[in-house]
Amino acid sequence: MSTEEHPDDSLLRRYLLGDRMAEAEQDRLEKSYFESDACFDRLLEVEDDLIDAYIRGGLSPRECAQFERHFLAARRRRDRYEAMRAIAASFFRDGPRLHHSLLKGFREFFVMQSPVARTAMAVLASAAILAVGFLGAGYARLWRENVNAHALLASSRQAPTPAFLTFNLRPGLLRSGAGTGNQIRVEPGVEWLVLRLETPASEEYSWFAAALSTAPGEELLRQNRLLAAGSALDFRIPSGVLTAGQDYAVSLAGIKPDGRRTSLQSYAFHVAK
């Protein structure tokens, strides 16, 4: 097996998405995965990561297009994608799991024990409470010092800009200019926006498709196979596609299990300056 350094993940990703590459570079990469088991295993992992990112809406619009046009053209990958999509969808379809109460579980466990064991547990619990009391006093002092230190640090540096910003959009055609509609503000340095769209009766639909357009109707980007979580779904867009002071609209379509597509609502919004 080759002991050469393996290609990095971004190169493997580009390879799988069908990106144009220099012939020598592609040749090197292919030779590398032919000869090295570790490199080929990594390539398969990156393949799964890509499918996963597509399902979760984590690919850029360009990558999405490459994924749909090139990656899914191979039947083997399409089957793998369908399998991973089915797994992801079943987490949503089963609904949120009911969490067991920790306290209830502990009470049941306690009741199941013999009287001797219960007494021993009670003594141990009392000792633990005392110990926690002592430790708590020390912790409180440390905590106060920590808060003071943080306040000092905070005053000497600016808050970091988050990479993502989430906005809740309500359906409708009113923009903020009209008084009550949706308005978003893109802070400098924010790379991605998550438009959280309120969705209607999502159980009817297997998937959703969302398209972002300018007010005159020019489509900027589109994402298919979006999953709703409860009564909302997240439509991730790169902040660079929006211009301050302009109006935009997101149109939403629902896809039923038999493949039929139904146009749902639109969400107009204004990007504040």
């Binding site: 399998a83 089963d94 493949g259």
Partner: peptide, 22 residues
């Protein structure tokens, strides 16, 4: 292939996925 229509196999996939996730 690009459409969102569900094939019979996709329906089987869903059942299997639910079982596996369960």
């Amino acid at each position: 292939l690009t459409g969102d229509c569900d094939t019979p196999a996709a329906q089987d996939f869903r059942l299997v996925a639910r079982d596996v996730v369960g």
